[in-house]
Write a protein that binds this DNA or RNA. Structure first.
Lengths: 214, 214
DNA sequence: GCCATGATGCTAACACTGTAAACATTCCTG
DNA sequence: CAGGAATGTTTACAGTGTTAGCATCATGGC
């Protein structure tokens, strides 16, 4: 085994023997390793080769499980999105649902972003694709929108006073999500402090009622 | 001139003669070219080498004007931030200031993002550094916050009813900015349609008054 | 007027990246 | 047990950021 610059594998021949030539479930292992790399700091270091290295496998083995880097990122985004949704559901239930639950869910969203910034950013860059949603912003299909958005819209519709139009619900849902999402992003970009009190204050003040602007 | 793979320069020797060995003001030219590349679509293609190519200069000439790629990106972010601020000021003045002006400014923010998504994203990834602001999110200096934020806070303070506490103003300003910023980001990420009506509706409904949550 | 020197450009080279092609090994099915 | 289908490996290539060393030009002191 000529271990030149191209040979990425770190494992000793013995180690390779130990796990056998075939990994077992490399696809899942790669997602795991990618997740770990994303959490352990620098997002720049998330290269295909780094993930392969972490999994103890040659760089090109990845291509047996993912068409290209984007495909792996999509898988990671999907996984991260699941965890985020889980966090939000937990927070919502813990708060007993209703308006308080919606607030708790929003705060959980922001806290998730703060706790795992690289992962959160990556999710958001790939959510459209990961979700199978529209990406083309110019597409004349403003109705086709993400599953998360639909869920939020439904939750808000349930809380809105009867008689609130579907259009109003849509706008309020967009505003509510934008507020939480923007807070998360501004914190990640260092424009707002990652202050728990601020997060709670901003999230709690979301306007769920239609209003003619004061 | 052995034009191997490393030689990035496209210009003919004659063209080089035309502009002379020295460029004149390469620093500014590089920012210009970077700006053009960011506007002409794919953000992936914004490599140092691509910018140098666009400027008709060897790849490493860049290093005479910027310490590294991050420095060039910071310069681009600063330039973009100026343009964004200009757009907002124009919109605000055109709307005659006041609450309507603040709304107009917010809408301009979102429309800028929609019109130049790569540039906007790049600005936001580099704004903290470009601004000379804090980056360390864990830093115990929640008061040191970006110039843009301070401006917004002042504008909101001017509109808030007298007696509104500084803390309330801070929260309201954060919420207001987060709302606008989140809307822009969600549109860029394909989660919300780039719909002018939606933008106006979301922006107009910002809550500028303190409220105990309905 | 000349020429040292710094500013600015250039080529060559390195380590890294994503990805394709061809080869090797193992598993599984007929 | 044979022979593909899966899965992993090496090799290779083009592209990236960055460094080192050389080339050219502008300019100020003699």
């Amino acid at each position: 085994m000529a271990s030149d610059a191209n040979t990425v594998n770190i494992e000793s021949d013995a180690a390779v023997k130990a796990r056998g030539y075939h990994h077992g479930d490399l696809g899942a292992a790669l997602v795991d390793c990618g997740m770990r790399l994303l959490e352990s700091g620098d997002a720049e270091s998330l290269s295909l080769r780094a993930v392969a290295r972490e999994a103890g496998v040659s760089a090109t083995a990845v291509y047996r499980h993912f068409a290209d880097k984007a495909a792996l990122l999509r898988a990671l985004a999907r996984e991260g999105l699941d965890q985020l949704a889980q966090n939000q559901r937990n927070a919502m239930m813990h708060a007993g649902g209703g308006a308080a639950g919606l607030d708790a869910s929003g705060a959980a969203y922001v806290r998730f972003a703060v706790a795992r910034p690289q992962l959160f950013r990556m999710i958001m860059s790939n959510i459209a694709v990961a979700n199978g949603d529209v990406i083309d912003q110019t597409a004349a299909a403003p109705e086709r929108v993400s599953g998360a958005m639909r869920q939020l819209r439904d939750a808000i519709a349930a809380l809105a006073p009867p008689g609130t139009s579907a259009e109003e619900v849509r706008v309020i849902a967009a505003r509510s999500w934008a507020q939480v999402h923007g807070l998360a992003m501004l914190i990640l970009d260092g424009q707002l402090p990652a202050d728990d009190a601020l997060i709670d204050a901003v999230v709690k003040g979301r306007t769920l009622l239609p209003q003619g602007k004061g």
